[in-house]
Design a protein around this nucleic acid. Structure first.
Length: 576
RNA sequence: GCGCUCUUAGCUCAGCUGGAUAGAGCAACGGUUUUCUAAACCGUAGGUCGAAGGUUCGAAUCCUUCAGAGCGCGCCA
């Protein structure tokens, strides 16, 4: 029920026919033609720019073409009340009131109103979060986590297949430092050894102590005297513990991954060697040198021969290292192998959600996926920009050294899951986001989340008062419904919902959904208050009954809000 | 030095893959509750869309240049 799409198709068909009959000429591409939501000041329902697009090819002014097309396209359309032509050549359509009645009846019977189901079902792999398993998640991880989760929801809503995956970087130096930190905390607990204060590489956070304690408690038979002996076992135990923390954090955010892929496993299965061989065969890999970046302190830079991937072939600014000087694989090499395993699993589309600090990584990883698959745009990377934390009006810097992170746990307990999700989503992922801790906490009533939830709660209260359930089926045999102008304005807003979903999905930009829900709620709240002066606009009659029109009106709004809130993963309480 | 992202009202941001007179919220000021939830509503005020060129019938949106902010630039992940 995307009326914009339906009218666009109608227009395209009609002008194609007209061109066959030599009534008009068509340009090579019709892609510029669209059917839009007209600005409010033009009192119409749909508008199209088709005349302007055809003007040049036909060598006639848009207004003249519009006059011509008006008959060609809309002559036999009995949903239309009136067509107006406006400068510089828009065709503005006003639909009959009855159209909106049938529109409402139609969407009332749909389970997934707004979903675009024309596209074929594709298999998507979306990788997100993938934070190092060295401790709980902090606020910085949150935004990308929510973005990835909601993009998955969006795709699923549109009947796409989605696998949500977390890549566990359980291999490499960070993990060694992490394991040693845990070990030292164990020694602190068991043998009163002092934890070193001045080693930058170690993890100082309090949670390491908890992990240490858990490991001691659950492994009574283990000996912790010789670090080298116990290192491997301890690494596994420590990673399991921190993954537990991470999974709890994600759960509290309402996020559940389908799959956790381990870097260690990939390395141990020789996946890296295999994929590098494959790349060598195709001459994407060679031994060469990397130049130091200009304008940086490069006193310690030693140019050396290295195994490199030819990412410059794909537009990167330098080729990328696959092996470190100690002959072990770089992080990139492991990730190349990981992405190769994604390709082996036959996904149609790969999506990665990255933090802003990893944006420089996009070019090389998309390059390697292109090299391996021979397909451009197989992998799409979305970046979630930085969240600027503000506390008491001042920017708050988190420091790893002091271990003073604001964790996901802090955030959820202070602000709540729903508010966190809603706020993190309501801005474009490409733009930085100010997250004012004190403000969100103190002024929680100004939070846009409550505004939308309140809308749903108000509708629920009506249903409660008349002893009906919001999910009850409505018998809509009566086709002679009468709606007032304000109600029809809201139907128009509802008719925009599929367009909102479509563009959010196409661009993988879910921030449009909270924005839409806010706007719809605003129109509803406005209508609600009209009931104070105008009895006609109250929902419940004096005898505690409700008219079918009002019932179906309320239900369509509640349903749209619920659908949207489900996609962004936020609750819709019936009482507030 | 190079790359990516951002710059729209005092503040925080939308602006639908180029459309009509650029929109919200907050803050400010003035109103609305005997009536279905006032966590709401109505009104007033607030703009050279960072700057300059270009493409186009038409630019906040696309291109170029410049300025400012953020992130990043081998053996960290």
């Amino acid at each position: 029920m995307n009326i914009f799409e339906e009218y666009l198709n109608k227009i395209l068909n009609k002008i194609k026919l007209a061109s066959e009959e030599k009534l008009i000429l068509l340009p090579e591409s019709l892609s510029g033609i669209n059917v839009d939501i007209p600005p409010k000041k033009f009192k119409c329902d749909l508008s199209t720019n088709v005349a302007m697009v055809l003007s040049k090819t036909n060598n006639e002014p848009p207004i003249k073409i519009a006059e011509k097309l008006k008959d060609i396209i809309f002559k036999d359309d009995n949903n239309i009340e009136k067509i107006e032509i406006a400068n510089p050549g828009f065709i503005n359509i006003i639909l009959k009131k009855e159209f909106w009645t049938s529109f409402l009846l139609n969407i009332n019977n749909l389970n997934n109103f707004g979903a675009s189901l024309n596209g074929s079902k594709k298999k998507h792999l979306i990788e997100f979060v993938s934070a190092n398993p060295t401790g709980p998640l902090h606020v910085g991880h949150c935004r990308g986590a929510i973005l990835g989760d909601v993009i998955s929801n969006l795709l699923k809503f549109n009947n796409q297949e989605v696998v949500k995956e977390y890549y566990v970087n359980d291999h490499g130096n960070q993990i060694l430092h992490f394991t040693r930190s845990v070990y030292l905390r164990i020694k602190e607990k068991l043998d009163n050894q002092t934890f070193p204060q001045n080693e930058d590489d170690l993890y100082p956070g309090e949670y390491i102590k908890d992990i240490a304690q858990h490991i001691i408690d659950n492994n009574k038979d283990l000996q912790f005297d010789d670090y080298e002996k116990i290192k491997l076992t301890l690494t596994k135990l420590a990673i399991t513990e921190s993954l537990k923390l991470i999974k709890t954090n994600l759960n509290n955010l309402g996020i559940i991954h389908d799959n956790f892929a381990s870097e260690t496993e990939i390395v141990e299965n020789k996946e890296v060697d295999k994929v590098i061989d494959k790349l060598k065969k195709d001459k994407f890999v060679y031994i060469g040198k990397i130049k130091a970046p200009e304008g940086e302190d490069t006193t310690n830079w030693v140019e050396r021969d290295q195994l490199l991937f030819r990412s410059t072939d794909f537009g990167d600014d330098k080729d990328r290292a696959l092996k470190k000087s100690d002959n072990t694989w770089t992080y990139f090499a492991g990730d190349v192998a990981y992405h190769n395993t994604k390709l082996n699993r036959n996904f149609d589309k790969l999506i990665n959600i990255l933090g802003a600090d990893h944006a420089g990584y996009i070019k090389r990883i998309t390059s390697v996926v292109e090299a391996l698959s021979g397909e451009k745009n197989k992998l799409i990377c979305k970046v979630s920009q930085l969240v600027k934390l503000i506390k008491d009006g001042k920017p708050f810097k988190m420091s790893k050294r002091k271990g003073d992170y604001i964790t996901v746990e802090d955030l959820i307990s202070e602000v709540g899951k729903d508010a966190t999700r809603f706020i993190m989503l309501s801005r474009s992922n490409d733009a930085e986001l100010d997250f004012d801790f004190t403000k969100v906490k103190e002024k929680s009533k100004d939070n846009p989340l409550y505004y939308v939830q309140y809308c749903y709660a108000r509708i629920s209260s009506v249903f409660r008062n008349i002893n009906k359930n919001i999910d009850d089926k409505i018998d809509n045999e009566n086709k002679n419904m009468q709606f007032n102008n304000e109600e029809i304005e809201i139907f128009k807003k509802i008719s925009e919902w599929p367009k909102c979903v479509e563009i959010s999905t196409k661009k993988l930009e879910p921030h449009r959904i909270p924005v839409y829900l806010y706007e719809l709620s605003s129109q509803f709240h406005s209508y609600w208050n009209m009931g104070k002066d105008d009895v006609e606009k109250r929902f419940i009659n004096d005898d505690k009954t409700i008219n079918i029109e009002k019932l179906i009106f309320l239900k369509s709004i509640a349903k749209t809000i619920k659908t949207g809130m489900d996609i962004i993963g936020v609750d819709t309480p019936e009482k507030m």
